[in-house]
Design a protein around this nucleic acid. Structure first.
Lengths: 356, 356
DNA sequence: GCTTTCGATGTTTGCGTGAACATAAGACCA
DNA sequence: TGGTCTTATGTTCACGCAAACATCGAAAGC
């Protein structure tokens, strides 16, 4: 860039050079003020909609603004106000329905509250990846951070958390240390299992999510406890990695077990894989085997048969996250504690009474 | 968190009231400078890794920084430097594989280049929604904007685009006005159709995306042209809205048409719905009807049968977007023109020769 | 021994805003 | 008519940082 010469010229009231400089440099309040024949402060007042500016002046300023194409400089604003009006979101992947939807909810609520969202991607779900994301926070213009991630990855990094940055965590059990928002996964799992037991199944098999996932753990735990509470036998759970592929592999095992009449899958995608495996083995859903999923992805209605699954209100999760974050920003204090968003079972066509 | 008091106490060995005030304020370079016994400028040099600071001094500054928990104030930095090091992304929904993946790609590339991503959600895919998103741009700290959206919604709003903001558009035909990045959808559609014709199908039916979608139009157009180029009959295309539900409804029609032996679906989710409709009507995939999708969503391998589909490299799209955006930021000029990312057909098990 | 040079560090300044304070010009009342 | 409010507008300054320039001390060259 070689604007140096121009800006120097701008200091001197000259003709062409000045125009050039003004064109190159961004329009500031001072430019608008000069054009409108008022002081910069008056421009500021108009810009912020403050009272005490007579209508005539206001119009003159407004006109000068639009003529010059004035945009307030948010850096200067942030510097002056000491806040950025932006919330950072740290996450590893958008590839799961939950994360994606939660992010959407966050984005919607934040923009409604006049806050921007700054995405902080984590390159890899490792301590190093997470740590580097948090390091990047140092130079990021955010007032609060929402972490969508298994918090056990964070433990050691969290100590490096810059003070003054408020944190809300999703999908974690760190309610003792941070503000946590999540869906009531345990209750969702309970509803799923009880629904199947209510249909007459002797017990319910479980295709769990990967190890190390709190979501998977919570769902598995609630499944087990619900069975135990009813005095049912608890079959050995299978494990997938959330993918349809892994569901298919697990489904093959399940299909070979004639005692298996009901499966609670930890997410919908794995359920899709299970469908395929069962069909391949000649077992019908729901006549021979009932399936319940978790998430209620949009495609669940297009599954064949449409999937009975546990619906999670991710938009609400996002909303609460922002709510918590802003509360902290405004209150200045961190407030540990959990917020649970209710889940509910959506009954479609993949469950039925067991075969006799 | 109330650790502030400690660090302040160290900086200013004075009374409580003062400590409190300083604790509330963020640590600035001046604080670090005082603590380390150097000038603020030296702190700045260390902070930016500039040369000309003797190792001993550097260490002292570094130590003072960490003792005080110093974080550079990015607002002040942006104000001084005249750039934000942030790219805005305007999009309506994350709910489609493409948008989500593209966003991921953008986020990854941007953070690699030292840029942050600011999400600018559009509340509704209407002129008003889009316009308000662009208006919000005024107060947003971004150097460039990537628009992931059907550009025909933008037309009139674009005139209000603040000067000095560079734009890259995804999924659009506005290559004459803006820098556009997209996958080579026409070629993908061509490959899909030719694959089916190559298997011996007389013609290929098409389940198109919604009206007004450029992606849908492009795919439909290429489908038609490929058929025409081979001198095949062009059946009336059906229309869905990208959802599995709409695919199911269209599939029902398709199933009733005995002449239909091959369907090219404009996306994978609709293909899933078609699967279900065909199965309900007793038509097998691929023995009776071959299906090809578009997108290659992760679940495509878990479909039953695994779906043959057109793969799009969204990560690459995101990468190119950032590349284009940064080029504009650095070059200062807007550069219209299209960048096409190749697509390719992934053959799985949903296609076969037609029944005889 | 005296300047010259250069490397390390300090001082000044201004980026664009908006809070706080200052001023000017009427309006109103006694 | 003089004084007191009120209202509209202007001035000053600081936010935190870093570019530009200034200074200082020591090593190098004569």
């Amino acid at each position: 860039m070689t604007t140096g010469a121009d800006s120097t010229a701008a200091a001197l009231p000259r003709s062409t050079a000045l125009d050039d400089a003004a064109a190159r440099r961004r329009v500031s309040m001072a430019d608008v003020a000069k054009r409108a024949g008022v002081s910069a402060q008056t421009v500021s007042r108009v810009s912020n909609g403050f009272p005490g500016v007579v209508e005539e002046t206001r119009q003159a300023v407004l006109q000068a603004m639009s003529e010059l194409g004035y945009r307030p400089n948010s850096a200067a604003r942030a510097l002056k106000r000491g806040e950025f009006r932006s919330i950072g979101v740290i996450l590893f992947t958008l590839s799961t329905t939950g994360n994606m939807r939660t992010l959407e909810g966050i984005a919607a609520s934040a923009s409604e509250a006049g806050y921007a969202i700054t995405l902080i991607p984590v390159s890899a779900p490792t301590q190093i990846g997470v740590r580097s994301a948090f390091t990047r926070l140092d130079e990021l213009a955010v007032d609060a951070v929402i972490v969508i991630m298994e918090v056990h990855l964070l433990d050691s990094s969290m100590f490096a958390l810059p003070p003054g940055v408020h944190v809300v965590v999703v999908d974690s059990d760190a309610g003792d240390r941070y503000a946590v928002v999540d869906t009531d996964q345990a209750d969702g799992a309970r509803q799923a299992v009880e629904h199947l037991l209510g249909l007459g199944h002797r017990t319910v098999h479980h295709l769990a999510g990967p190890e190390g996932s709190f979501a998977a753990e919570r769902r598995a735990k609630a499944w087990r406890e619900t069975l135990e509470a009813s005095g049912r036998e608890v079959p050995e759970p299978l494990r997938g990695d959330w993918s349809g592929e892994s569901g298919y592999r697990a489904g093959l095992e399940l299909a070979d077990d004639p005692s298996c009449t009901a499966v609670f899958c930890a997410n919908d995608q794995m359920a899709l894989g299970v469908y395929r495996a069962l069909r391949e083995r000649g077992r019908r859903v729901p006549e021979d085997v009932s399936i319940v999923g978790f998430d209620d992805i949009p495609d669940a209605t297009a599954f064949d048969p449409p999937l009975t699954t546990v619906h999670q209100d991710f938009a609400e999760v996002g909303r609460r996250c922002v709510e918590q974050a802003l509360e902290q920003v405004r209150g200045g204090a961190s407030r540990p504690g959990s917020t649970l968003v209710p889940t509910h079972l959506v009954e479609r066509a993949s469950t039925a009474a067991p075969p006799r």
